[in-house]
Design a binder for these strands. Structure first.
Lengths: 192, 192
DNA sequence: TTCTCACTGGAACAGTTGTTCCAGTACCGA
DNA sequence: TCGGTACTGGAACAACTGTTCCAGTGAGAA
């Protein structure tokens, strides 16, 4: 049961952040410790010391990604009222933002690999984010509080599907006008 | 420019099919020639001879996956009239079918890896499938025919997003009732 | 028989992988 | 000054990677 180093270690935090940015650029698929270490200014031995294993490193990278995601969701929640349609519109504005493609690409890659997996660092990642997003769309205040069904769960499920499906389309084709127009019109119809 | 063996080779076809089924079980991420070869009853050398390289092998596997996908789309097209809503309903019935989770999981994994890539066997895979599906939803007869905009492109974009977003949710959570109900209700509202 | 052909799979190669080990450095409180 | 703690990175290891090479198989045509 050998685990990571103490999570509070400042060096560990710094390297996790840099590794995350490296993965944003190069993807998860071909991640390898030595090239990663060299790119972020350290050595493979140090990464092993700080993260315990490659899996530990990947877990730390995914934790950074999730932190980014939760930050976004929090900002959206603060900026909008408890109205599902308004929240969804803000989430979409973020997703379609031109600067966020890399984060979302990583997100889809992790989601895809997570689906077939029951163990390893990616297990549960997909189900986790579904829960996170549904929580926000349902207007919950925090993660892990009770089953506060203030919103129609069918509606939030549909809006979530629309958000993610539109994101997949946009990431693959880059045709922002078509996807954006379709999303806005559909959201309007769903809410009626 | 050394390329694969002649695509018509019967042995090549058979091994491509078996490799595809192996990947359906084990995923693309950790695919490696020797374990694959042993599992499907051949050797790594033979795979190199028949497919030219690992990339060639992966391309052949993806071609099998795409053939599966196009078969499904064709069946759906035959079974329904040119009505977008009817087609979408049939596609969804297929996606939500309990026997198809493995194919779709592979599909999402390939899609995710394809997004960050401009070269290699996965390049273009994501954009390709968007095109395939939009074509079917728009009621086109064949791939690669003219811009026959018989249907509202915004509506087909929206329906496609709904289909794929719902699929992501279902694959991750397995909560068929919630996702299925949300999809049906949303499709109804979008079409009105 | 003889020649050709598609196919086979084991041996070998050079490079990379995750991981272990350890001597070494800098800092900090006692 | 001592001892401890946090961190460093190079060396080494066994295992595995994609790939090349080649002697060989069996079938079918000439």
């Amino acid at each position: 049961m050998r685990e990571d180093r103490t999570d509070a270690s400042p060096r560990r935090r710094e390297l996790a952040r840099r590794a995350y940015e490296y993965v944003l650029e190069h993807g998860l698929a071909e991640l390898s410790l030595r090239p990663l270490a060299e790119a972020i200014g350290t050595s493979a031995g140090v990464l092993m010391f700080l993260f315990g294993s490659k899996d530990g490193m990947v877990r730390a990278i995914l934790a950074e990604a999730r932190a980014d995601e939760l930050t976004m969701l929090d900002e959206v929640r603060e900026a909008s009222v408890a109205d599902l349609v308004a929240v969804a519109g803000n989430v979409w504005a973020w997703l379609a933002g031109p600067d966020h493609a890399r984060v979302l690409t990583l997100w889809v890659e992790a989601y895809g690999r997570s689906l077939g997996t029951t163990e390893g660092p990616l297990a549960g990642f997909a189900a986790q984010t579904v829960h996170d997003w549904l929580g926000v769309l349902n207007g919950k205040q925090d993660t892990d509080d009770g089953p506060d069904d203030s919103t129609d769960p069918l509606l939030s499920t549909a809006v979530l599907a629309l958000l993610r499906g539109s994101m997949l389309d946009l990431l693959a084709t880059g045709e922002r006008e078509r996807v954006d127009a379709a999303f806005r019109e559909s959201l309007r119809r769903l809410a009626s």
